[in-house]
C-alpha cells in the first residue's frame, strides 16, 4: 500500500450521516390470498407511504491513500452509501465532506440506447459523463480497440450479444479516471481473455485514483485492495477500522 505524506484534510469525512428514504407500498398485498379483493384494491387502494432509515448515523474518516471496503450482507446499505458518497442521494441529516470528486460506476449498462449504434452510444455516454465532443473523438479509437468491437461498432446495440454490450459499457465507463473511485462490486465483463484486460484496467484506475471505496462480497479481493473496513448491518455501522479486524468481525457475526 502507498504511504502518504501527512495531509490535514481527510478525503472523506462523515459525521452522523443518516439517510431516510420514503417508500411507497402498494396497499394490495392481500390480493393474492383473496381474489375477491381485486375490485376494491384496484379502485380504492392507496399507496402507503412510509419512511425507512437506510443509513443510520454513520461516522467515519478516510484519509488520503486509504482505501475503504464496505462489508455487509445484502440490503445492509452498501450501495446506498456509495450513492450518497457520489452525491446522488443527499443525506437527510448529518454531515458529509468530500475533498475531491467522487465518481461511481453503478449499473454501467444503464442508459444505453438500443436503437443507436455502438459508436453513437459511446458518444452519448461520453456527453452524459460531461466530456466535450472533441475529447470523445480523441478517446473513441481507444474505446473501440479496448472493447474489441471494431467490426460491430456501426451496428445498432440491439444486435449485440450480452457480452458485447457489457464490453462496450465497461470500455466507455472506465475511460475517465475518477478522483475518488466508488465501486459497487468489482466490474468484470466478457470471456477469460477479456477479463484479464478488464482486471488490468481496473487496477490501473484504482492506482491512479486518490481514493477508493469498494463494496463487494469478494473477501480476497477486498483484502488485496483495501486498507480500511466498514461493517454495515441494516444501515447501522457496527465497526470501522482496519480491514482485517472488520472482516473477522463480519465473519463472527455471520456465524451467530
Amino acid at each position: 500500500m502507498k504511504t502518504d505524506a501527512p495531509k490535514p484534510r481527510p478525503l472523506l469525512e462523515a459525521k452522523n450521516l443518516t439517510l431516510q428514504v420514503p417508500i411507497f407500498q402498494p396497499n394490495d398485498r392481500k390480493l393474492l390470498s383473496n381474489p375477491s379483493r381485486f375490485l376494491t384494491d384496484l379502485y380504492f387502494s392507496r399507496t402507503k407511504r412510509g419512511i425507512v432509515t437506510i443509513l443510520d448515523k454513520l461516522s467515519f474518516k478516510l484519509q488520503r491513500g486509504e482505501r475503504l471496503g464496505l462489508i455487509g450482507a445484502n440490503g445492509a446499505g452498501k450501495s446506498t452509501l456509495l450513492r450518497v458518497l457520489a452525491g446522488i442521494y443527499q443525506p437527510s441529516s448529518g454531515k458529509l465532506t468530500v475533498n475531491g470528486v467522487a465518481k461511481g460506476m453503478f449499473e454501467i449498462s444503464l442508459g444505453m440506447n438500443q436503437e443507436a449504434t455502438g459508436l453513437e452510444n459511446i458518444y452519448m455516454r461520453g456527453l452524459q459523463m460531461g466530456l466535450k465532443l472533441k475529447q470523445i473523438k480523441e478517446l473513441v479509437p481507444g474505446i473501440v480497440d479496448f472493447s474489441e468491437l471494431s467490426e460491430a461498432i456501426d451496428n445498432p446495440l440491439n444486435t449485440y450479444s450480452t457480452g458485447m454490450r457489457m464490453r462496450l459499457a465497461f470500455s466507455v465507463s472506465t475511460i475517465v479516471e475518477p478522483d475518488i473511485l466508488l465501486l459497487d462490486e468489482w466490474l468484470g465483463a466478457g470471456d477469460t481473455q477479456f477479463r484479464a484486460k478488464v482486471k488490468q484496467r481496473m487496477e490501473g484506475l484504482v492506482e491512479s485514483s486518490r481514493g477508493l471505496v469498494l463494496a463487494t462480497h469478494n473477501t480476497s479481493l477486498m483484502q488485496s485492495l483495501c486498507t480500511k473496513g466498514l461493517v454495515l448491518s441494516k444501515g447501522k455501522m457496527i465497526f470501522y477500522g482496519e480491514l482485517d479486524e472488520a472482516l473477522d468481525l463480519y465473519k463472527q457475526q455471520q456465524k451467530k
Partner: peptide, 9 residues
Amino acid sequence: RAQILQGGL
C-alpha cells in the same frame, strides 16, 4: 432515471 442514478446528469 438512469442518468440521475448514475450521477451523470
